[in-house]
Protein backbone atom coordinates (compact mmCIF):
# COMPACT_ATOMS: atom_id res chain seq x y z
CA UNK A 1 0.00 0.00 0.00
CA UNK A 2 2.65 2.49 1.11
CA UNK A 3 5.05 1.45 -1.64
CA UNK A 4 2.23 1.70 -4.18
CA UNK A 5 1.53 5.30 -3.12
CA UNK A 6 5.21 6.14 -3.35
CA UNK A 7 5.44 4.51 -6.79
CA UNK A 8 2.38 6.45 -7.95
CA UNK A 9 3.90 9.77 -6.83
CA UNK A 10 7.27 9.06 -8.41
CA UNK A 11 5.69 7.82 -11.62
CA UNK A 12 3.46 10.90 -11.81
CA UNK A 13 6.53 13.09 -11.39
CA UNK A 14 8.35 11.18 -14.12
CA UNK A 15 5.40 11.55 -16.52
CA UNK A 16 5.06 15.25 -15.71
CA UNK A 17 8.71 15.89 -16.49
CA UNK A 18 8.64 13.76 -19.63
CA UNK A 19 5.34 14.84 -21.21
CA UNK A 20 4.84 18.22 -19.53
CA UNK A 21 8.34 19.72 -19.74
CA UNK A 22 10.75 17.81 -21.99
CA UNK A 23 8.22 17.07 -24.74
CA UNK A 24 6.79 20.60 -25.21
CA UNK A 25 10.24 22.21 -24.90
CA UNK A 26 11.76 19.79 -27.39
CA UNK A 27 8.89 20.38 -29.81
CA UNK A 28 9.23 24.14 -29.45
CA UNK A 29 12.92 23.88 -30.25
CA UNK A 30 12.34 21.72 -33.31
CA UNK A 31 9.45 23.90 -34.50
CA UNK A 32 11.41 27.13 -34.12
CA UNK A 33 14.28 25.72 -36.18
CA UNK A 34 12.27 23.85 -38.84
CA UNK A 35 9.30 26.19 -39.33
CA UNK A 36 10.06 29.53 -37.64
CA UNK A 37 7.39 31.50 -39.49
CA UNK A 38 4.53 29.06 -38.89
CA UNK A 39 5.54 28.34 -35.29
CA UNK A 40 5.28 32.04 -34.46
CA UNK A 41 1.88 32.63 -35.98
CA UNK A 42 2.48 33.15 -39.73
CA UNK A 43 2.67 36.89 -39.15
CA UNK A 44 2.50 39.39 -42.01
CA UNK A 45 4.66 42.50 -41.84
CA UNK A 46 4.12 45.70 -43.79
CA UNK A 47 6.63 48.54 -43.48
CA UNK A 48 8.09 46.80 -40.43
CA UNK A 49 4.78 46.67 -38.58
CA UNK A 50 2.72 43.57 -37.85
CA UNK A 51 -0.58 43.88 -39.67
CA UNK A 52 -1.90 40.45 -38.79
CA UNK A 53 -1.54 36.74 -39.36
CA UNK A 54 -1.98 34.90 -42.62
CA UNK A 55 -4.21 32.45 -40.77
CA UNK A 56 -6.29 34.76 -38.61
CA UNK A 57 -9.11 36.54 -40.41
CA UNK A 58 -9.69 40.27 -40.00
CA UNK A 59 -12.82 42.33 -40.08
CA UNK A 60 -13.35 43.94 -43.48
CA UNK A 61 -16.52 45.94 -43.93
CA UNK A 62 -15.26 49.02 -45.79
CA UNK A 63 -16.50 49.37 -49.37
CA UNK A 64 -12.92 49.53 -50.69
CA UNK A 65 -12.06 46.02 -49.43
CA UNK A 66 -13.17 42.48 -50.07
CA UNK A 67 -15.41 41.60 -47.14
CA UNK A 68 -14.63 38.73 -44.87
CA UNK A 69 -17.24 36.39 -43.43
CA UNK A 70 -19.65 37.39 -40.67
CA UNK A 71 -18.11 36.71 -37.27
CA UNK A 72 -19.82 36.19 -33.92
CA UNK A 73 -16.82 37.75 -32.19
CA UNK A 74 -16.21 40.53 -34.69
CA UNK A 75 -12.73 39.10 -35.39
CA UNK A 76 -11.49 39.79 -31.87
CA UNK A 77 -9.57 36.57 -31.14
CA UNK A 78 -9.70 36.74 -27.31
CA UNK A 79 -11.52 34.36 -27.17
CA UNK A 80 -12.40 32.78 -30.51
CA UNK A 81 -15.93 31.48 -31.01
CA UNK A 82 -19.20 31.15 -32.87
CA UNK A 83 -22.83 32.19 -32.49
CA UNK A 84 -23.91 28.67 -31.50
CA UNK A 85 -27.38 29.47 -32.76
CA UNK A 86 -29.39 26.36 -33.56
CA UNK A 87 -31.15 25.54 -36.83
CA UNK A 88 -34.52 26.88 -35.63
CA UNK A 89 -33.16 30.00 -33.94
CA UNK A 90 -35.21 33.14 -34.49
CA UNK A 91 -32.14 35.29 -33.83
CA UNK A 92 -30.15 33.43 -36.48
CA UNK A 93 -32.96 33.73 -39.01
CA UNK A 94 -33.06 37.48 -38.54
CA UNK A 95 -29.28 37.79 -38.86
CA UNK A 96 -29.22 35.71 -42.01
CA UNK A 97 -32.09 37.61 -43.63
CA UNK A 98 -30.42 40.95 -42.83
CA UNK A 99 -27.06 39.79 -44.15
CA UNK A 100 -28.64 38.50 -47.36
CA UNK A 101 -30.22 41.88 -48.04
CA UNK A 102 -27.12 43.83 -47.04
CA UNK A 103 -24.78 41.77 -49.23
CA UNK A 104 -27.17 41.83 -52.19
CA UNK A 105 -27.77 45.58 -51.98
CA UNK A 106 -24.12 46.58 -51.56
CA UNK A 107 -22.93 44.36 -54.36
CA UNK A 108 -25.88 44.90 -56.72
CA UNK A 109 -26.93 41.28 -56.72
CA UNK A 110 -30.36 40.61 -58.23
CA UNK A 111 -30.96 37.08 -56.99
CA UNK A 112 -30.44 36.64 -53.22
CA UNK A 113 -30.21 32.89 -53.68
CA UNK A 114 -26.88 33.12 -55.53
CA UNK A 115 -24.97 34.53 -52.55
CA UNK A 116 -22.42 31.95 -51.36
CA UNK A 117 -23.48 30.63 -47.93
CA UNK A 118 -20.25 31.59 -46.17
CA UNK A 119 -21.07 35.27 -46.69
CA UNK A 120 -24.33 35.09 -44.73
CA UNK A 121 -23.36 32.63 -41.99
CA UNK A 122 -20.85 33.24 -39.20
CA UNK A 123 -17.83 30.93 -39.07
CA UNK A 124 -16.98 28.43 -36.33
CA UNK A 125 -13.84 30.15 -35.08
CA UNK A 126 -15.03 33.69 -35.77
CA UNK A 127 -11.60 34.04 -37.38
CA UNK A 128 -12.09 32.27 -40.72
CA UNK A 129 -9.46 33.80 -43.01
CA UNK A 130 -11.11 32.57 -46.21
CA UNK A 131 -14.11 33.11 -48.46
CA UNK A 132 -14.89 31.29 -51.69
CA UNK A 133 -13.49 32.72 -54.95
CA UNK A 134 -17.10 33.09 -56.08
CA UNK A 135 -17.82 35.38 -53.14
CA UNK A 136 -14.76 37.44 -54.06
CA UNK A 137 -15.83 37.82 -57.70
CA UNK A 138 -19.24 39.12 -56.58
CA UNK A 139 -17.56 42.01 -54.78
CA UNK A 140 -15.31 43.22 -57.60
CA UNK A 141 -17.71 45.75 -59.14
CA UNK A 142 -18.36 47.39 -55.78
CA UNK A 143 -14.64 47.73 -55.09
CA UNK A 144 -13.88 49.07 -58.55
CA UNK A 145 -16.49 51.76 -58.02
CA UNK A 146 -15.35 52.64 -54.51
CA UNK A 147 -11.72 52.90 -55.54
CA UNK A 148 -12.54 54.59 -58.84
CA UNK A 149 -10.52 52.02 -60.79
CA UNK A 150 -10.50 51.87 -64.62
CA UNK A 151 -11.18 48.72 -66.63
CA UNK A 152 -7.49 47.86 -66.75
CA UNK A 153 -7.28 47.76 -62.97
CA UNK A 154 -10.54 45.84 -62.83
CA UNK A 155 -8.88 43.20 -65.00
CA UNK A 156 -5.91 43.20 -62.64
CA UNK A 157 -8.21 42.50 -59.69
CA UNK A 158 -9.69 39.56 -61.56
CA UNK A 159 -6.16 38.31 -62.24
CA UNK A 160 -5.30 38.59 -58.56
CA UNK A 161 -8.37 36.55 -57.64
CA UNK A 162 -7.32 33.83 -60.07
CA UNK A 163 -3.79 33.91 -58.75
CA UNK A 164 -4.72 33.72 -55.06
CA UNK A 165 -7.52 31.15 -55.37
CA UNK A 166 -6.55 27.87 -53.76
CA UNK A 167 -8.02 24.63 -55.03
CA UNK A 168 -8.23 21.49 -52.91
CA UNK A 169 -4.92 20.87 -51.14
CA UNK A 170 -2.84 18.16 -52.87
CA UNK A 171 -5.77 18.04 -55.36
CA UNK A 172 -8.04 16.26 -52.88
CA UNK A 173 -8.45 17.91 -49.51
CA UNK A 174 -10.86 20.71 -48.68
CA UNK A 175 -12.87 23.25 -50.63
CA UNK A 176 -11.91 26.08 -52.98
CA UNK A 177 -11.04 29.20 -51.05
CA UNK A 178 -9.23 32.50 -51.11
CA UNK A 179 -7.45 34.34 -48.30
CA UNK A 180 -9.18 37.69 -47.73
CA UNK A 181 -6.24 39.45 -46.08
CA UNK A 182 -3.89 38.48 -48.92
CA UNK A 183 -6.48 39.67 -51.40
CA UNK A 184 -6.88 43.05 -49.75
CA UNK A 185 -3.12 43.54 -49.47
CA UNK A 186 -2.95 43.08 -53.24
CA UNK A 187 -5.76 45.60 -53.65
CA UNK A 188 -3.82 48.22 -51.74
CA UNK A 189 -0.78 47.49 -53.89
CA UNK A 190 -2.85 48.04 -57.04
CA UNK A 191 -3.86 51.43 -55.75
CA UNK A 192 -0.25 52.53 -55.45
CA UNK A 193 0.67 51.52 -58.99
Amino acid sequence: MKTQILTALKFFLAMTILTGIIYPLLMTGVAQIAFPSQANGSLILKDGKIIGSELIGQKFDSTIYFWSRPSAISYNPIPSGASNFGPTSKALKKQVDDRRIAFATSNSIVDNGTIPPEMIFASASGLDPHISPKAALMQVDRIVKARQFDTEKQQQILNVITKLSEGPQFSFFGDERINVLDLNLELDRLNKK
Binding site: T28, A31, F35, Q38, A39, N40, N76, N184
Partner: peptide, 25 residues
Protein backbone atom coordinates in the same frame (compact mmCIF):
# COMPACT_ATOMS: atom_id res chain seq x y z
CA UNK B 1 3.56 23.16 -37.22
CA UNK B 2 4.51 22.76 -40.87
CA UNK B 3 0.86 23.38 -41.74
CA UNK B 4 0.72 26.50 -39.57
CA UNK B 5 -0.06 25.52 -35.95
CA UNK B 6 1.80 27.73 -33.48
CA UNK B 7 4.46 26.41 -31.08
CA UNK B 8 6.14 29.16 -29.09
CA UNK B 9 6.44 30.65 -25.62
CA UNK B 10 6.22 34.27 -26.86
CA UNK B 11 3.69 36.78 -25.59
CA UNK B 12 0.43 37.38 -27.46
CA UNK B 13 0.96 39.80 -30.34
CA UNK B 14 -0.98 42.96 -31.10
CA UNK B 15 -1.40 43.63 -34.79
CA UNK B 16 -2.84 46.70 -36.47
CA UNK B 17 -5.19 45.45 -39.16
CA UNK B 18 -5.60 46.92 -42.65
CA UNK B 19 -8.73 48.70 -41.44
CA UNK B 20 -6.71 50.13 -38.57
CA UNK B 21 -8.10 48.11 -35.66
CA UNK B 22 -5.96 46.49 -32.96
CA UNK B 23 -6.17 42.71 -33.03
CA UNK B 24 -4.57 40.63 -30.30
CA UNK B 25 -3.23 37.37 -31.72
Amino acid sequence: VGQGTVQTFSHYITATTLQGVHQVI
